[in-house]
Amino acid sequence: MGRAVVRRHGRMSDGELGDAVERARDGDEAAFAAVYREVHPRLVGYLYGLVGDDADDVTSEAWHDIVRDLHRFRGDGEAFRGWAATVARHRALDHLRRIKVRPRTTALDEITAEPATPGDSEGLALENISTEQALALIGELPQEQAEAVLLRVVLGLNAPMAARVLGKRPGAVRTAAHRGLKRLSERIGTQPGQFGPGRQDRQTGGGHGGQGGPDGRGGQGDVDG
């Protein structure tokens, strides 16, 4: 059984992925398929944190951009992950602009709806947390923090590459990621009953969340230019 697990969990090395990308660039479809299967699930996860249930559609759009521009890409596996994330991010931000408002996920509702057993209710809820719920929780952070966390944890990018995707300085992205974790820790570390306030807090601090669109685009300038 082990192999299947390895395949599912393991991550292609940068070298492997870079090699596959290069072959894909030369028209090798099998290599491209390997690249897709390696990167796509992580891209979907990243975008799920940004656009919720539309992630599949938006990621799909992004792949068409990737296919179109692949011949111009140069770099190894990590660089490809970063590039793919950048392309997907553009698509996601476009999407968010189109729909004008960040989706309200229900992750927190679902989690807090778990029956509360004194003592370990939080543990129970988190024990069964689904990937979608986890991503949605992260996605409810201020966008800057959410993206920093998602790029590191979901896409597995290193800090400098995450910074490049976001078009920001590595230090700023590191700080954002740390703040994001801190905030997550505060919210899940307290009793379930405190999810509510935590969320309100975020909404009243909506300046954060609202900065998503414009601020995100601003950040893009660095990547684009």
């Binding site: 940068d14 190894d76 596996g77 990590e78 660089a79």
Partner: peptide, 10 residues
């Protein structure tokens, strides 16, 4: 060792 252009990109 095939990391052509990159390793650095990251």
């Amino acid at each position: 060792t095939h990391h052509t252009a990159a390793a650095h990109a990251s």
